[in-house]
């Protein structure tokens, strides 16, 4: 990847992480772990890959993204705010009474949200429906669905996987955030969904694995995805839950809890240090 672009993306991703922490801290609830693990992915998609217009969020020819793991809404909100879909100030009232930013994505109320999600396993089906519609009416847009690794334990995910391959939805890219953790522990301890690449392959998908925190590798994966025709693409991204905040990394306890003031300050100072390091040279 071009070094200037990579630096810009790293800066944006760091700001997205700060927005996640800001939101969850002010909400006193929410899901920082899985939000932080998709910060780089969403940064890349919304900054480089996706055809979207913050001034015209409902533009018919736009690319769509369905956050099937809807509990990671803070990450989606944070990148949408970075891109100017709404003021960053909104992040501070995440989950508050009367707030625009609901605990889980609400397409009726939030510009840039393409589908309401929160009940795991359902978003990918809606993404298939959007992709199918593009096929039916010869529209050129792409559809991205972001899933959790725990989420793939839902049978519905595999019903959708079967449907997408059967209908040759090559305009659909599903990214599974393989951070290895869900609520009750490691995915391999709870009710193991692995091996995911082999499963998606067996369902008729083109499978790519990717390092979720390396923009060179992210670019490589999406460039490969673009070349595939006749079948849907699954990108299994190897990520670190809580990525970017030292004490949240790989900790199952940070799946769904908010930092207290001290933890908030520590998280923010880590991210600020990272940001000034990136901006400094």
């Amino acid at each position: 990847m071009d070094e200037i672009l990579k630096k810009q993306l790293s800066i944006t991703a760091c700001k997205v992480r700060m927005g996640i922490i800001e939101g969850v801290y002010n909400a006193k609830s929410g899901h920082p772990g899985g939000s932080l693990s998709i910060a780089d992915l969403l940064t890349y998609l919304y900054s480089v890959k996706m055809n979207v217009d913050p001034k015209n969020p409902k533009m018919p020819e736009r690319d769509r993204l369905v956050l099937s793991k809807g509990h990671c809404a803070p990450a989606l909100y944070s990148i949408l705010a970075e891109r100017g879909f709404f003021p960053k100030e909104e992040l501070k009232s995440l989950r508050h009474i009367g707030a625009m930013l609901q605990g889980h994505p609400d397409m009726k109320g939030t510009p840039g949200v393409d589908m309401s999600t929160g009940s795991l396993g359902q978003g990918i089906s809606a993404a298939c429906g959007i992709a199918l519609s593009a096929k039916l009416s010869n529209d050129a847009y792409k559809v991205y669905a972001v899933l959790g690794d725990g989420e793939t334990e839902e049978g519905q995910v595999w019903e959708a996987a079967m449907f997408a391959a059967h209908n040759k939805l090559d305009n659909l890219v599903a990214i599974v955030d393989f951070n290895g953790l869900q609520i009750d522990g490691a995915v391999t301890d709870v009710c193991s969904p692995v091996p995911l690449p082999e499963k998606f392959s067996a369902f008729g998908w083109h499978v790519i694995t990717m390092d979720a925190h390396d923009f060179d590798d992210i670019e490589r994966a999406f460039n490969e995805a673009e070349k595939i025709s006749g079948q849907p693409v699954a990108i299994i991204q190897k990520s670190t839950k809580g990525k970017g905040v030292s004490f949240m990394e790989n900790q199952v306890s940070w799946h769904g809890s908010a930092p207290n003031e001290e933890q908030y300050n520590q998280a923010m100072s880590e991210l600020k240090a990272k940001l000034s390091e990136l901006e400094g040279n």
Partner: peptide
């Protein structure tokens, strides 16, 4: 349920 909102 509170903060999780309508879906939950």
């Amino acid at each position: 349920v509170g903060e999780d909102g309508a879906t939950h």
